[in-house]
Computed example of a mutant assay.
Amino acid sequence: MNMRVVSLLPSATELLIEVGGSDLLVGRSHACDLPRDLTHVPMLTRGNLCELDESLLAELAPDVILTQDLGLVDAKTVARVAASLRNPPRIVSLDPKSIFDVFDDLLRVGEAVGRAAEAERSMVTLRARYWSAIDFVNPFVPGPEVLFLEATDPVCVAGHWTPSLIEAAGARHSLNAAGAPSRRVDIEDILAAAPDRVVICPTGLDLARVREECSALERTRWWPLLPAVMDAKPRSIALIDGKHMFNRPGPRLVDAFEWLVAWINGLDELAPQGFPVEYR
């Protein structure tokens, strides 16, 4: 008998699909929107408040709940509701700090849902793609300073897995350390960092919204003072779909890394086809 799985985290849903577990998914959060054919799967959360539909969760009777300590739904709420069910499900809480943690999470999800062999095969493929991209990075050439924006008002720079990806791709990200949480930064600190490249990838925003955020940045007093703007080199500023790329620690983080390597090292042929990016 197949496992019954509820995912309250978009990246966890993508990991589940990656290990061939689409047939196991019986419930999801409203933010779990990939792949596109999940519309038939009941949603346990709705809107910005992300309140958990506890009665629906009980009705779905999951064997496994995929979530995160700082996910869409409070971890204590998930634990409380799960414990109250007739057959309490196993809770798998994910909290990756690097792309290697994501590879480990893929194995954890596979083991939890009975698809360990599939997870192992997928992990080997994803790791191979990562290391193949690394081969194109010259570690002896100083790379550009990158400003990676996860929010624009207030201004927040990327954390968790993103700084280490930037560094592995051959660039620098001095405004935040690898593994540290995303953080708000002062404009003075941004100007002091003197970024040669800028990525605008606000969490949860698609490209249309990112264009609007970019336009708002261009109207600020500090934006024209950035080397990336003053030098006016082609493709120095990248606008990326922040709803689906970089901000979800799932299998497509490898796509994001391949794009980073291509962009930083001027190797367009390495970029994944159809990667959601526009340049300024």
Rank of each mutant, 00 (worst) to 15 (best):
N48R: 13
E258K: 12
F136E: 11
P224G: 02
F136I: 03
S7K: 06
A228V: 05
D189T: 10
D23V: 04
Y279P: 01
P96E: 11
Q68A: 11
R80S: 05
A192P: 11
I240W: 04
Q273A: 13
P234H: 02
T45W: 04
R252C: 12
R197Q: 03
L239K: 01
T152E: 13
D206F: 10
K97F: 15
L267Y: 13
A168W: 13
A75P: 01
L25I: 13
R252G: 13
G170W: 00
F140Q: 12
A128H: 12
P62H: 04
V64Q: 00
S55F: 12
A116Y: 00
R184E: 15
A194R: 11
S55E: 15
L175K: 06
P96D: 13
L44V: 06
L226H: 01
R127L: 07
P10Q: 06
P195R: 06
A117F: 01
R248K: 13
L270A: 04
L15M: 15
D186C: 12
D196R: 07
R86I: 15
S215M: 15
W223A: 07
V277C: 10
A31G: 10
A192L: 14
R221N: 14
L239H: 00
V19S: 00
A256K: 03
L24F: 09
R127P: 09
A116H: 01
V199W: 00
A228S: 04
A128L: 09
S174Y: 04
C50K: 09
L107S: 03
V185H: 10
P276R: 02
A128Y: 06
W259T: 06
L60V: 03
